[in-house]
Design a protein around this nucleic acid. Sequence first.
DNA 1: GGAACGCTTCGGCGCGCGCCGAACTGTGCC
DNA 2: GGCACAGTTCGGCGCGCGCCGAAGCGTTCC
Lengths: 223, 223
Amino acid sequence: MSLAELAGLLADRTRATICVALLDGRAWTAGELAKLAKVAPSTASGHLSRLIAGGILAEERQGRHRYVRLAGPEVAALIEDLSSFGAPPPARSLRESNRRRAEARARTCYDHLAGHLGVAVADAMVRDGLVADDAGLAVTPAGVAWLDRLGIAPAPARGRRPLVRSCLDWTERRTHLAGTVGAALCAAALDRHWVERAGGGRALRITPAGTTAFRTHLNIELP
Amino acid sequence: MSLAELAGLLADRTRATICVALLDGRAWTAGELAKLAKVAPSTASGHLSRLIAGGILAEERQGRHRYVRLAGPEVAALIEDLSSFGAPPPARSLRESNRRRAEARARTCYDHLAGHLGVAVADAMVRDGLVADDAGLAVTPAGVAWLDRLGIAPAPARGRRPLVRSCLDWTERRTHLAGTVGAALCAAALDRHWVERAGGGRALRITPAGTTAFRTHLNIELP
DNA sequence: GGAACGCTTCGGCGCGCGCCGAACTGTGCC
DNA sequence: GGCACAGTTCGGCGCGCGCCGAAGCGTTCC
């Protein structure tokens, strides 16, 4: 796969919309994606086949459903990098504007936390010495102990995925925490109902329990 | 600029060839790029205008020449990431095969060292404790002293560019050193004639002085 | 068995864009 | 001044591809 071929897969409005939607890290059905991208099911089906053949997406068939998701964290990172390169186009409706505002407050970025919440968490962890950010991010011994105390165990390093990775937040224009630790943190937050999926997209709602938890564990005051 | 628009700029064979050529970090004239990409000057001219308008390239006009280069390190990193995503297509000629072999030994990757040499340098610096690679790369105090002793001063951190960044090497399938330290190291190596540009592309030739220098300073044995 | 449903395959339509050559502009050299 | 040369603009050509609807296939539910 050459650079031009790979870029070509993302160079179409419909396919790009699909990939960005899948940045929420979940698996979507072909029909859902067709509706989202406002194209006929037949059109979406063709796009999905191309994205899968190109290694961008992975599929899982269940009965009469075809579930697809991003092929892995590297792909998600690539798409994040590309989308944060240019400024996002302005919202064209009230509905979209509301969605944007919700996503700016808190959202998932593939498998970790982003938006105002994500940046606040990253800032707090650096301030409290749980993560060092001199010349690249790294988890400190204090950070390891903190994770352990909370019962959060990052998945063992498989392949080349770094423990932490900084990810540029396109709404905040600052970096938040990615990598396996970022993923584990996000999974724990969802699992313990500190945050909940909202609106069927990438947006998250912070629960009262979450407000308390973030204050207790990270000294973050959320509005 | 949307994701699809940005990807669209890289989704053309000719434009992709131009961008990859510019990964050598130097400025090329429009005519050179037209010849390289095997298209008419008029065609190349149009492509350059589009890439500049999209923020991928920066131009500098001098007399009747139009010099272009990549707009910055972020763009270079983006293109590197995209090109290392898929396996490179096989070489189609002896000439190209020779070029590939030379580039596999030593080459520039935008503004830092890559290829077998780049990986060897990165490995040696990690082995000697100049750079730590637990959960992301970071320069150690010993590394700062080492750079200082050699009279290599990385450019002060302007913007968000990290001091060191790992960059996946597409020939070695391992990481080498990027970031401002990687750039300073490469500039010093060129400046002190440890390596020389070879063949007009990204390939580098290691000089006898370079062989000695890499052995003395980093305990690397080069063939 | 039959109907509803999710998805795929196929044929056909039309736009977008990458290409070139010819003509033109502006610079540098003699 | 005159010529050579780098680069640009413009018009026209043709391929590629994204779109849809219709028809077909397999699954699920009644």
